[in-house]
Amino acid sequence: MSSFQRGQCIQGKWESISRRDFFGVAAAWSAATSMGLALIGLVKFPIPALFPDIARLFKIGKPGDYPVGTEKIFEEKKVVVIRDQEGLYAISLTCTHLGCVVSRQANRFDCPCHGSKFDSIGRVLSGPAPKALPWLKVFQLPDGKLVVNAARSVPTGTKFVVT
């Protein structure tokens, strides 16, 4: 067809490719590769380096604010903090299906969006939610204040023992 022909494999034998064509093909592929790599580099640009919107670590007061039987909902953080005989624990209120906020019922959490239901410690009862509401890490600062880390989940049933 034209002078720009590539080496071909004909019946198991390689037709040789001229030096000129070889350099031509090599140049074309290097141009394509470098543009491709540059593109991959650029795709990293929109991945945020930090999340500015909300503080994932927040103080919830002192243990004294939570006598046994207390239950406090932090609306903005979408977390409920509960104190029972054995200790203190925090459950995320973000539905594990598609992120709506579940609402507290008598002994359940219900999601308004597609009807998932969770029991009082967050395990799925029905609906499309694929997993339980995560329990969040609770710890105490040296000055005695309690902190919830919403970015770290702990196994269901892990309670912070108030001393």
Partner: peptide, 9 residues
């Protein structure tokens, strides 16, 4: 989202 939540980003 440019973040984990829907916000300014």
């Amino acid at each position: 989202l440019g973040s984990e939540e829907i916000g300014q980003e």
